[in-house]
Amino acid sequence: MKPVILNIWSFLVRLTARFPSIGSIAPFIPIVAAWWIVTELQIFPRVFLPGPGDVVRSFGLLVYTGVLPEYLQDSMVRLAVGAFWGIALGIPLGILVGLSQRAHTALWPLLLFFQAIGDIAWLPILVIWFGYGLVTMTVVIVYTVIFPVVLNTVLGVRSIPITMERAARSLGCSRTRMLWEVVLPGALPNIVTGLRNGLGYGWRALIATEIIVGTSGIGFLMFDARRAGSVVEILLGMIILGILWYIVDSWILAPIERATGQRWGLVTR
């Protein structure tokens, strides 16, 4: 009896060592199973808590009618546009505030304050200014992404050791080239961390915006379903949100962060 268990264990250990993604899927199996059992036993009314099967069916239907791919695309495009502008504006601003003491004195308190206001609190006034639509959403996401990027870039720029700067100067590096050769790569690990945090916040802001002022997107799908009282589609929306961000975060952002920070030995974990 015992050797059989040991053999299964051994098999599983070797399998997850070979394919690490299995290790991250495995914990969801008992959860889904428990969910399935709870709904089959009708502990809660089915209208309140539909089963996994219902959600899969609804997924199939929404894919078939083309609603889901369209909404998914809308959400991803909004996030990408927001992220692009957040990076394009955030990194230069961060380097400026990080390098210049004057810019730091003038802007740092404002940055902290405007970060504290939070993206979603801007929604009402943005709706007055720009109406319901892409501009409002983009502004909210840019607003969300930009602060973690700026704050972390400042941190990164300021943590570059003075000796490294001196070394570059004494090797004949001009002030402008210093920006490209020393400051940017030196701050890069922090910038990536900032981007990862920023997108995490941006993702949530996107959902909130779509829920409150949206006309399409995953957040809108969920809220529309809520209006119609369809719990199935809400659950489907949540699961898609979770999986999507999990993929973006652990397959794209986390490896980039590791590749810069840990490879160079700048971030100790």
Binding site: G23, S24, I25, A26, P27, F28, I31, F48, G200, W203, R204, I207, A208, I211, M222, F223, A225, R226, G229, V231, I234, L235, G237, M238, L241, G242, I243, W245, Y246, D249, S250
Partner: peptide
């Protein structure tokens, strides 16, 4: 803890705003 880590990462992603629709229904 290594078994449950992915589970909690998944749910931290959903934390907060994504629960609003279902919370208001429940």
């Amino acid at each position: 803890s290594s078994f449950l880590t992915p589970l909690f990462r998944f749910f931290s992603v959903l934390a907060g705003i994504a629960w609003i629709p279902i919370a208001t229904l429940w």
